[in-house]
Each structure stands twice: as structure tokens, then as C-alpha cells.
Write a protein that binds this DNA or RNA. Structure first.
Length: 500
RNA sequence: GGUAUCGUGGCCGAGUGGUUAGGCACAGGUCUGCAAAACCUGCUACAGCGGUUCGAAUCCGCUCGAUACCUCCA
């Protein structure tokens, strides 16, 4: 129903904004690196997936048919001591590795649900694609870009760099010289020809629990391989968009590109999108060094970092107030501001949707107000078209909200706004808030009309009292409701209410 | 040490050569029985120093500071 607008997005490969053109007109293939399920997802993870959810939703809104693939990594990561991450979690919890993976996968899905994100089209698991990964290792070997050493297989980075100029480093900006300059002491490097080489198949040691048979050894695939194999399987050798967190640029994405190139001689994705980090106390949130707050802690307020709990939608709105490529620092003040802004916008949204459209007295002329509203709507769209700038779109909605409130207060006459413009405004608010941002009323599923009925009665009684200038009764109702978290708002046409 | 990115008003945060970001906070006002809500107005910034330009927060250089990556990280 929507014509496809010109969309610009920032491509990490070129370092600038480019006009988006999909490989197959009207269709988009998008792959996003998903979570490693050995621990609770933290807020930083949430930000990335919320960002890509909005990107997914906007592409859908524009009319694209999108296949959105987001993986679950449930094997293959090595810890500093070389132990499989899933196995480590298993030992701590004394569970089967797949039990650990399952537990945190369920938790991750729950978190994504709480943030009201759409599920991806396909959510493949690394452990479910071992044959595909083994096949890819074989094709990389066949093409001469890997070598076997004692049952493990390593990607030959220097050879790849020599034979494919301009490819390695295209994501991270890193060049082989930098890698030569790497002086850090690394373990288990003795088998590699070059420090920049990386494992695509690891021979298992006795303590490894998740192992598979392969032509080279009983072992497990390298960390970067799963994404290469699964993106190829579901989206083809070359697809449109590949996304992930900034911190995955190197080595993960760089090596992913090398593997795809190494196995098929082509680039995996035309556009690489990277979200920036969520900071906490000005530092990156990271589960490995303990500087993080879980979403649950933020929601409950059970953390010294926040003065109170913040609802998932307020937190999501906070994230959307910043552009996805900027770092975003979590502070209590900023969350407080976002929460207020969110509630105000949602209240305005509710007012707007309940506003009657009456075409009877419309004289057919276009007013300055009409033009201003239409121009702000265009601003909102242009913001999204410009690399998914949710901050700009929200600013436009806020300004539009001013007109809505003025109409509701009768500070602006309904004759100033053409009926079709008001209808358009309603649609735009609905579209942006629900369809594109994926925001929703927080208490939408809590009551079933009971509260509405009670409030109608109370406000009716109060209106009668006010008519008789019985301020004591009137104020008693207002104050008592305030105590239970309901704010009464008196307007020209009677009172409305909202939860605080 | 190497490589990037960034430094915007009290706070958060868009913008990137000339035009209002927006939100929150604060102050004044309108409305109101009083409040609240809403609306209006005000506060009005681009780290520092140089350079390019008719014009720079926006481009270039340097300085200072911050963050991230450099084989666990979204």
C-alpha cells in the first residue's frame, strides 16, 4: 500500500550513507548476529535487537517483503582458558549444555517479547547447522584458503589477503599490517601459521562437551563460521543487509566476510549495519567485566544505578530517542526524562485516536495548520528514510502532538484542520507508534473494561459535585485517585484520566 | 602502542556549511474554584586554539578529553 520511498542507510563498508537498493526488487534479505545463550541477555543486547527490530519494521512498512534471519549461538565460543562457553555454563549450573542453551534462549525470547519486538522470519541455531558448517570448511579448504593442523582447520589470512585485495579489512578498517603489529600474547597459537589466522574447525579436547564428527577430527566449528553458513543457507551467497553490534566488526564480521569469500568468491552482504554500544556509567555494558544491569533489574528498580523501576516501553522509548549509531549512556535522569516523554506522547496518541472527525462544517480550504501538520508528517518520514533516524521521527511526533492537544483543548479550532488531514494524522501516529517503533500501552492487557466503567462512574459523580460547587467531594475523589496512581485531568469538555 | 568514533545548552539527545531539532528540568503566563493536565513565552549551546570560506557547531589542522576495537562480548 505504500510506495517504496528512497531509503538511505549508513554502510560500514563504504563509511557513508548510501541509497538502499535491494538485490531483488521489493524483497530484502537481512541477517543479524543474535545472542550467545549462555547468560541472561543484558540491556546492551536489547538495544541492538530493538534497533534492528525497528529497521525490520520500517522495511516492512515501506512495503518490502523481508526475510529477517537472526541466529542463536549455542556453541563454539571459546573462553580465555580455551573452554567451550556452553560447557563452562553447564559446569557452573551442573546442567547439560543444551539445557543451558535452552534456558537462556527462552529467557532471551521472553525479553524480546517484553520489548515488543517482532520475531525474526528464521531463527537458526548453530548446533542445528553443523553439516552446513562442515561443508563450508571443506569448500574453504578446497579453494586453498585454509589448512589443517592436528585435526583443527585454520583460515589462512595472509594468503587470502594476497589473493583478494581490498576484502579483508573492508568491515573493520583493519589491515594486515595492523595484525602483524599485534603483540598481545595469545594462547593456543602454536598451531597457526600466522597470528591473524583463525580456527574454522577446532579439534575437541577431553573436557569439551559439545562435539561432532568431521572429516578432520571430532570437534566443533569456529565461532565465526555459523553466521557464514547460516546466512548462506537461508539468504543466499549474497544478500542485502547484514547487521550486528559494533563490537562484532572485528574479528567476527571481518572473518565472516573472509569465510564467505573464501568458500564462494563473493561478498556475503551489500550493506553492513552496526549499532553502537549502550554505555553504563560512561563505559560499555559488558557481561564479561561485570559492568552491566539486567533488563529485569532496570524494570524493577532493584539496582543502585536507578532511583526507581522503568517500564520496558519507557526503556525502549529511551533507546529510540537516540540514533542507533550513537552511543547511548544510561543515566537515571535520562531515563526519567524519557519516561515522561513517552507517557506524554502516549496520552496525546490516545486523545488523538478518540478525537471525532467531523467533515460537516469543513469548507474545503487548506489552512496553514494543515500545511504545518503535513510538513511535520513528512519530517517524520524523512527522519526514518535517513538511516532510520528514530530521534528525528520522534521529534516530529512530539511537535505534531502539540497540535493534537490544542485541538483537544479547543485552543485550536477544528475548522483549522481538514478532516482528511486529521485522519492522516491519526494514521501516522498509529503507524509510527505501533507499527514502526513497536511501542504499546503498558497496561493494555491488564483490565477488560472494569476500570473504564468505574472511572466513568467516579468522574460522573465528581462532575455533579463540581456543578454544585461541592469542592470537598470533588477534591476527595481527585486526591484519592491520585493515591492509587490515577491522575484526573480536567478539560473544557469534562475530565479525563490516566495512570501515572 | 595501533586503529576508529565522538566531544552540542542544567540533563538526555538530533543535526553537519547560511533556516526551530525534540524531550526532561527550571522560570513566567493562559486556563482552573484551587490544583493537575494542556497550551504559550523565556532560558538558547555547539571542548580549546588556529585555518579554509562571503559565511562553520557543521570542512581542514593541532591540542585536550571521552569511548570503543586490537581474536569472549550486541
Amino acid at each position: 500500500m505504500n510506495e517504496i520511498r528512497a531509503l538511505k542507510l549508513y554502510n560500514t563498508l563504504s563509511g557513508k550513507k548510501e541509497t538502499f537498493k535491494s538485490i531483488v526488487p521489493g524483497h530484502v534479505g537481512m541477517y543479524v548476529c543474535g545472542p550467545t545463550v549462555y547468560y541472561d541477555a543484558h540491556l546492551g543486547n536489547c538495544r541492538t535487537f530493538v534497533s534492528f527490530d525497528v529497521i525490520y519494521r520500517y522495511l516492512l512498512h515501506l512495503g518490502y517483503k523481508v526475510r529477517y534471519v537472526r541466529n542463536i549461538t549455542d556453541v563454539g565460543h571459546l573462553t580465555d582458558d580455551g573452554e567451550d562457553r556452553m560447557a563452562k555454563g553447564a559446569k557452573i549450573a551442573q546442567l547439560e549444555p543444551m539445557e543451558v542453551a535452552q534456558k537462556f534462549t527462552v529467557g532471551f525470547h521472553e525479553m524480546m517479547r517484553v520489548f515488543n519486538t517482532l520475531p525474526p522470519s528464521i531463527e537458526p541455531r548453530a548446533t542445528g547447522h553443523i553439516p552446513e558448517q562442515i561443508e563450508m570448511v571443506q569448500s574453504i579448504l578446497d579453494r586453498g584458503y585454509a589448512y589443517e593442523r592436528n585435526g583443527s582447520v585454520y583460515f589462512d589470512v595472509p594468503k587470502f589477503v594476497n589473493e583478494n585485495p581490498g576484502v579483508y579489512g573492508s568491515v573493520s578498517g583493519r589491515v594486515l599490517e595492523d595484525l602483524y603489529a599485534e603483540t598481545r600474547e595469545l594462547k593456543n597459537q602454536d598451531e597457526k601459521n600466522h597470528p591473524a589466522d583463525f580456527a574454522i574447525w577446532m579439534k575437541a579436547r577431553p573436557q569439551d562437551l559439545m562435539v561432532w564428527k568431521s572429516p578432520w577430527s571430532v570437534g566443533f566449528p569456529g565461532w565465526h563460521l555459523e553466521c557464514s553458513a547460516m546466512s548462506t543457507k537461508y539468504l543466499g551467497k549474497t544478500f542485502d543487509i547484514h547487521g550486528g553490534g559494533n563490537d562484532l566488526k572485528f574479528p567476527h564480521h571481518e572473518n565472516e566476510v573472509a569465510q564467505n569469500h573464501g568458500s564462494c568468491g563473493c561478498s556475503p552482504a551489500n550493506y553492513w549495519l552496526h549499532t553502537n554500544m549502550l554505555l553504563l556509567n560512561g563505559k560499555k555494558m559488558s557481561k564479561s567485566d561485570g559492568n552491566f544491569i539486567t533488563a529485569a533489574e532496570l524494570f524493577s528498580g532493584d539496582s543502585p544505578l536507578v532511583s526507581k523501576g522503568y517500564s520496558p516501553m519507557a526503556v525502549k522509548f529511551f533507546m529510540l530517542m537516540a540514533h542507533y549509531r550513537s552511543t547511548l549512556d544510561i543515566t537515571d535522569d535520562a531515563l526519567l526524562a524519557a519516561e515522561k516523554g513517552f507517557r506524554k506522547l502516549m496520552e496525546t496518541h490516545k486523545l488523538l485516536q478518540n478525537m471525532p472527525v467531523d467533515p460537516r462544517n469543513f469548507d474545503g480550504s487548506e489552512t496553514d495548520t494543515d500545511r504545518a501538520i503535513l510538513s511535520l508528517i513528512e519530517n517524520a518520514y524523512q527522519g526514518m528514510d535517513d538511516d532510520f533516524n528514530t530521534a528525528v521521527a520522534i521529534a516530529a511526533l512530539n511537535e505534531l502532538g502539540g497540535y493534537v492537544n490544542k485541538l483537544a483543548n479547543q485552543q485550536l479550532s477544528h475548522s483549522e484542520v481538514a478532516p482528511w488531514v486529521l485522519e492522516r494524522l491519526k494514521t501516522v501516529f498509529k503507524t509510527f507508534i505501533h507499527d514502526i517503533f513497536g511501542l504499546k500501552e503498558e497496561d493494555a492487557n491488564e483490565d477488560n473494561g472494569t476500570l473504564e466503567g468505574l472511572m466513568e462512574l467516579l468522574l460522573d459523580i465528581r462532575a455533579q459535585a463540581r456543578q454544585q460547587k461541592d469542592w470537598a467531594t470533588s477534591d476527595k475523589i481527585r486526591d484519592a485517585l491520585a493515591v492509587v496512581g490515577i491522575q484526573v485531568k480536567d478539560g473544557k469538555e469534562g475530565a479525563t484520566w490516566s495512570k501515572t
